[in-house]
Design a protein around this nucleic acid. Sequence first.
DNA 1: CAACCGATTGAACATCTGGTTAGCATGCTG
DNA 2: CAGCATGCTAACCAGATGTTCAATCGGTTG
Lengths: 210, 210
Amino acid sequence: MLNMRSTDDLTARARIRDAALDLFGADGPDGVSVRAVAAAAGVSPGLVLHHFGSKEGLRRACDAHVVAVIRGADPDVLSDTSGLAAMLEAAAPVRRYLARALVDGSADAAALFDEIVTLTGAWLAEGTLEGWAQPSEDPQARAALYVSWLLAPLILESHLARALDVDDLHGMDATLRYSRVVVEMLTRGVFADARALTAWDAVKKERESR
Amino acid sequence: MLNMRSTDDLTARARIRDAALDLFGADGPDGVSVRAVAAAAGVSPGLVLHHFGSKEGLRRACDAHVVAVIRGADPDVLSDTSGLAAMLEAAAPVRRYLARALVDGSADAAALFDEIVTLTGAWLAEGTLEGWAQPSEDPQARAALYVSWLLAPLILESHLARALDVDDLHGMDATLRYSRVVVEMLTRGVFADARALTAWDAVKKERESR
DNA sequence: CAACCGATTGAACATCTGGTTAGCATGCTG
DNA sequence: CAGCATGCTAACCAGATGTTCAATCGGTTG
């Protein structure tokens, strides 16, 4: 057995982490036993604890790894949306894990979310000044919603795949297809006139008068 | 102890179901023990199984109850977007349970999702004909994405609340605030020119040439 | 009153959980 | 070579989990 921990990323430790990433991403940390991770990595259950101290430690290691992958991937493309773009480009297990961590309330995932919202807000503000983005009455909320909307396909993966009649939502075909519609909806909008806006005004007025 | 099972909705059975709804919605069925449900309902663990057969049976009962509540707004059929509205306006425990069931892959929640996507697709098609909705190159995908986007605040509740600096995302103030931005984004769009569309074209061409 | 039936309990069971420990093997270092 | 740290395993532990079961209680019915 070789002993190049820092360079070789295929050590038992890395294999355990990758297996955990995969399984945790599918069922959440609470739905996966240490033994299942060990089996998937081809090691004994004891080794998992030996390397990561505890199951919680393994979870933190997965969090850290995912954050590092997303932060570190292709920082040049698409200037300021790089975080988001990197996330969408990241390998499927990492993406699934991130989505799961977000709904499970992991602290690292939450911090990543906040960071991306901030970056997106700045990016959209710049776009507004340069004229390629619409101005917004509430830039903060818009940035948060924009990020949430791009995250939605990650989280609702299985439901969207069913609605679109595709097997793998994150295969290239399906990704191209739905991202096209996303761009279309974000460019032309969905509603063609202001009646949704006036409907909202009516709701607000009614609620305020109560 | 009274014995009016069918009429009184505060029987032990109903209390167990409500407690389970609450706890399952917070941590998912796998994160909650039968004993915890029993304790929250003020009964013994055995009674939970006596009434629902198994934990899985209890989960199914929760699913059925939530679906019934959502459908109950419009007893016969869901019309247009009323299902979506009912989901977003439902009481907090129901809302949380639904969000959790969607990401956990419950069959009933998935069926509800599909149904709402279909209704939304029909609604948007009608709008396209009547002129108040934009035409779409891919109506099926648009309907699915539209539903996903409106569901996103449900699922990412805590993260959005943090980004918007509000305590309760589904309180009236916050709801009015972010729904305003949703309407704004869906009416005016986010991008002011076609460069996102052309960027997508470039990506597609590049990937196809590979 | 007696028989019965559903609601309800508490204890028990087998299983699985995360975690600990002792020990083995191997490779580095003196 | 001896000494030692380290990767790794197997056995084991205490606790929690879902489920089962015998027994009790209370109201209804014969």
